[in-house]
Design a protein around this nucleic acid. Structure first.
Lengths: 153, 153
DNA sequence: ACCAAAAACTAGACATTGTCCAATACTGGA
DNA sequence: TCCAGTATTGGACAATGTCTAGTTTTTGGT
């Protein structure tokens, strides 16, 4: 099975290493996790990885377009492998859970501002903020931030 | 002139202090600045202010709805006093310049996702990413990040 | 297979942004 | 004016990410 991933990396001009394969797999297995969570996941796959390597692997993968980094306010960056379809995100203000939502419009940039002020716009990033079903039913009582802000898509 | 601002704070249930007046004035004078920039501005008004006070003043003002905090990726939080009109932002990937853009739709939440996944959505945050006119004409040559990512609206 | 060059990995120090806390100073109402 | 309640301050701390120098691994040619 690792064949596929190896091919993928090579096709994108990325040299193949155990660390990068594991990082990519971790992102794929459960999207919207933080660098730290991913490092943990990778450790359970290959035993050990340094923090720095996780960061550089994620950066490399993101630069080459294999994964996408999302950086919600009040949260460390998160990563996902669903790319190229211009979807957006819905984030719970209370627990930080992230879910994907399809773009209501279409291809990027999915929105054009009335006045672009001379900017060359390449992306319209949309984040919907609200409360997730779990936090709504918890009625703001015991709910804390960061219960499991990941694979809710 | 400070009369107005004092009234404003009192009306919003905020106790009036020299620091808060200065912070509010700093935000108003030049929007989209960071806490650090604002601290500098305040110091030139009233001589001195602690970092912590700037942060708590900004938080207080934001909570009471007098100012709004925006937190673009790869940038410290920025603050603006234009509130209640659901406008969005256009940010230069190269220099970080921020400009306001009017919401192409109207009142918040200005967009409804097709599938809200059971979330109670209260805001759709839109950030347009691109390159500002200055960075376009600099043709990626000498341009560095953070030339003056502020009052370009 | 082997070797050299290039690239990636690692650990640790460092940078930035923001928060916590306890002591002191100020504000607003009686 | 005095007092209780707030706000301010500075210093330590926390979270996330980056830099760097040295070591290890991968790659491509023999």
């Amino acid at each position: 099975m690792p064949e596929d991933a190896e091919q993928l990396l090579r096709q994108h001009g990325i040299t193949v290493t155990a660390q990068r394969l594991a990082v990519l797999r971790a992102v794929t297995e459960k999207p919207h996790r933080t660098a730290d969570d991913l490092a943990e996941a990778v450790r359970s796959m290959i035993g050990a990885i340094s923090r720095q390597t996780v960061y550089s692997a994620l950066q490399e993968l993101a630069e080459r377009g294999l994964i996408r980094r999302i950086q919600p306010a009040n949260s460390p960056a998160r990563y996902e492998d669903r790319i190229g379809d211009n979807h957006h995100h819905l984030i719970c203000r209370n627990c930080g859970a992230v879910v994907d939502v399809d773009c209501p419009v279409g291809a990027a940039p999915c929105l054009k501002p009335c006045d672009d002020a001379g900017y060359a716009i390449d992306e319209a990033e949309v984040i919907y903020w609200g409360r997730c079903p779990a936090c709504i039913s918890d009625a703001g009582a015991t709910a804390q931030r960061n219960s499991d802000p990941t694979n809710h898509s």
